[in-house]
Computed example of a mutant assay.
Amino acid sequence: MNRLSLNQKTINSSTLPQAIDACVRAGIGSIGVWREPLQEVGVQRGAELIAQAGLRVSSLCRGGFFTGQDRAAVLDDNRRAIDEAAELSAGCLVLVVGGLPAGSRDLIAARATVADVLEELAPYAADRSVRLALEPMHPIYCADRGVVSTLGQALDLAEWFDPEVVGVVVDTFHVWWDPDLERQIERAAGRIASFQVCDWITPLPADTLLARGVMGDGHIDFPYIAGLVAKAGYTGDVEVEIFNADLWRQPADVVVPLIAERFAETCGY
């Protein structure tokens, strides 16, 4: 339990103060913060509330969407996200890199854009001691959310930079299927900035963004992946991040004890 972090999306209807209170009541020592509910209370006030509760911030979600057509707006928003992560002393800023630009079918160009924007942002993050965390996304999201689909692709980008400036996210939902996963997690030693867990459930809902389940309800071998991550030297917080409409309809005081129980049962911590 001392490594469990509650990602805010798991209790999506809760405000940041409510999510902080839920962590405290459950004895969870870390929280993954999302930028939208953070803005509702203000970055400075949010940082104060988290510090007063004695919580760590395992990550700030999210920056990225580098493939947007307005490069200046993309850079401005990501610099703001970096500043917010610095204010929170977040363990990392999670980057969802973006899908294909509107009307484009050119994956090669989109991935080149990701590399270009990352190169522009890395010095800004380094100056503020913020670690950028590239999140590879399952290929079903390649068109609209993440043209970086595998951990190997994320590492190919990250390895151009100091590992304390650019790392990667290992999210079980996005990587569990990868036949090269063992080798890539071994390769990621020293670069794992965040480890996120939730299950892959079937049948997939109509909105595949909401296809995540509570650990143990689906198909992922959590002890196996957690073992690979541990072997790679990762000792940080483990976030439970679940996008699921049924779960979101339940009260936080029901959801949080459930995920704490399943985390202990499935992840081996």
Rank of each mutant, 00 (worst) to 15 (best):
Q69S: 15
I225C: 11
I82W: 08
R183W: 12
V168Y: 02
A230F: 04
A86H: 12
V197C: 14
L16F: 06
D83S: 13
P37S: 07
E48I: 07
Q44R: 15
D180G: 12
D156S: 06
Q184A: 13
G46E: 13
D127P: 08
V170S: 01
F65Y: 15
H219K: 10
T113I: 15
L49F: 07
D162F: 00
P17N: 13
L118I: 03
A85Q: 04
A260W: 07
E239V: 01
E164N: 06
R80N: 15
Y234V: 02
N2I: 08
A226Y: 10
T266A: 13
G152T: 08
Q69Y: 04
I31M: 00
C61Q: 01
W160T: 12
G46K: 06
F195M: 00
I242W: 06
P163E: 02
P205A: 08
R128V: 14
R80H: 14
S149N: 08
Y234C: 00
V24H: 11
A110I: 00
H174M: 11
L88C: 11
R183Q: 09
Q69L: 15
T266G: 10
A72K: 08
A102V: 15
L100T: 04
A211P: 06
D199H: 10
I50R: 01
V114P: 00
S129W: 11
M1Q: 05
R45C: 15
R212K: 12
P17K: 09
A73I: 12
